[in-house]
């Protein structure tokens, strides 16, 4: 479904990702783990077209998309929930969700999808008229994921959904990620520092170090890998 080939990207003179090859198949949950500054977020921003790729190719269903504008990429069905959630602080919960459906015009279906995300996260229904900026961290994460779902993505990119959240909320978020994947056959690309949790719900994983893919394999294999255990799982 999505294929990154020798992708290089960065900011100014800094090359944040030097050589990234990733392949994601339809229906999978793939995780990308790595330390701070390894290039995880840059990888996602490059897929979304916000950070331009300096070289290499990105193929989505066989089509080259590395030159496409961010809005075209959303139109193709790739949506991102960025790190730090990026809720529009002065838009209400409902308006944030409307913005998620920005490229859609099927009012009826949009309304149905709003009901769907409210069923996933009932707390959002209660807060629908409240400004996004007044929500707690966990609620903001739920809203950010719901907003991305409003575009009916084929591929959902999640950047550190567990960051800064309480363990209970993290468990809930990961449950929902599995549910979204199973119910809608949405392919998930999950970037995490929380390698343990991520590998437990993923089919396969990639490990990024200093802007290069250092290791990849099935999630079980990575969980058993002694180097990974030492570096990322704290065992």
């Amino acid at each position: 479904m999505l294929k990154l080939e020798n992708i290089q990207a960065g900011y100014g003179n800094i090359l944040a990702i030097k050589d990234v090859d990733i392949e994601i198949n339809e229906g999978e949950i793939i995780t990308l783990i790595g330390a701070n500054g390894a290039g995880k977020s840059t990888t996602l921003m490059t897929i979304s077209g916000v950070v331009p790729a300096r070289s290499g190719r990105i193929l989505f269903n066989g089509r080259e998309i590395q030159k496409a504008e961010p809005d075209e990429i959303v139109r193709m069905g790739i949506c991102q929930v960025p790190e730090g959630r990026h809720i529009f602080p002065q838009l209400t919960v409902k308006e944030n969700l409307d913005m998620g459906a920005f490229l859609r015009n099927d009012t009826k279906e949009i309304r149905r999808d709003i009901e769907y995300v409210f069923s996933l996260f009932p707390i959002l229904a209660e807060r629908r008229g409240q400004d996004g900026g007044t929500l707690s961290g966990g609620e903001q994460q739920m809203l950010a994921m719901s907003r991305a779902l409003m575009a009916r993505p084929k591929l959902l990119l999640l950047d550190e959904p567990s960051m800064g959240l309480a363990p209970l909320v993290i468990r809930q978020i990961f449950e929902i990620i599995k549910q979204i994947n199973a119910e809608n056959n949405t392919t998930i690309f999950l970037v995490e520092q929380n390698a343990n949790q991520a590998l437990h719900i993923a089919d396969r994983g990639y490990v990024i170090e200093n802007g290069r893919i250092a290791l990849s394999g099935s999630a079980e294999a990575l969980l058993k890998n002694t180097e990974i255990q030492k570096a990322y799982l704290g065992i």
Binding site: D71, C79, P82, I87, L91, M99, F102, L103
Partner: peptide, 23 residues
């Protein structure tokens, strides 16, 4: 209006506006 909401969204968080598909 939708355009108005998109204007507010863009002024509040431009990167995120791009990520929801706003030109």
């Amino acid at each position: 209006t939708k355009v108005g909401k998109a204007m507010r969204a863009t002024s509040q968080d431009r990167t995120m506006a791009m990520l929801v598909g706003i030109n």
